[in-house]
Amino acid sequence: MDIVSLLIQTLNAVQYGLVLFLLASGLTLIFGIMRIINLAHGSFYMIGAYMAFGLSSGITETLPAMIAVGLILSFFIGFILEWVFYAFLYQREHLEQVLLTYGLILVFEELRSILFGNDVLGVAVPEALAGSIPLTATLSYPVYRIFISAACLIMAGLLYYLIRHTRLGMMIRAGSHDRNMVQALGINIDLLFRIVFALGFMLAAFSGMISAPMTSVSPGMGNQVLIISFVVVVIGGIGSVGGAMVAAMVIAFADVFGKLLVPAYAGMFVYLVMALVLLWRPEGIFRKG
């Protein structure tokens, strides 16, 4: 493999890893802080992708406008979902959480079918980002993929800043440790958790939104990313956002280079990596407390 293809594959892996990170960070936040197993997280990704399709077909003119409207809309949907469904799950068993969130997958799939049908849809790459950067006479790299990486990095940076350096982040971290004490300091923990959930939803939907022009927008797309998101969360250490970043990169590189080097076993390569990591560290790379 020459150096240019290696570069291309590396860029692909980084881009895939960053998208995976955004997905998994929402999942790990919701699980780590609220202790909820959210099987519907893949559906949130799907909702983001269909939102991109819906918004880009005539409602918003430009990509920044689409992203802005999509982010606000998804935060709002997440906020309502927590209020109506997830708020009742905190004191429940994992089995009941799995049942409700699986039920939500079915509801979301049905709603998607009613609203958009069952065909595979496409979202056009915005014109400004549609070009490619030529690397050699025959190889080039699409600008939109670089844009995805950049957008994910910005999102990850904002997330890091929010959690590490704002009062809201301090409250969230405190709440993940001792719910009652946070309440006893006069903080509305229900509202706090609702915001965390809405953020998790927003991150998943954002991943779906910006990935839509690269992948097809299709039924069942959420289920494919759900499994791999859980793999990332488990490898990274449940509840650890930093761990999710490392694990997302490990999985993305394993996937991209696995397909390249051992194409016959590509499907299981990622799970092999997971098994090895868990043998080495059963609690994940960044185990918590």
């Binding site: 009062r167 301090m170 409250m171 971290r173 405190a174 300091l185 006069g186 903080i187």
Partner: peptide
């Protein structure tokens, strides 16, 4: 999991 400063500021 919070620093001394954060324990104070968050409240």
């Amino acid at each position: 999991n919070l620093s001394v400063r954060e324990n104070l500021v968050m409240a």
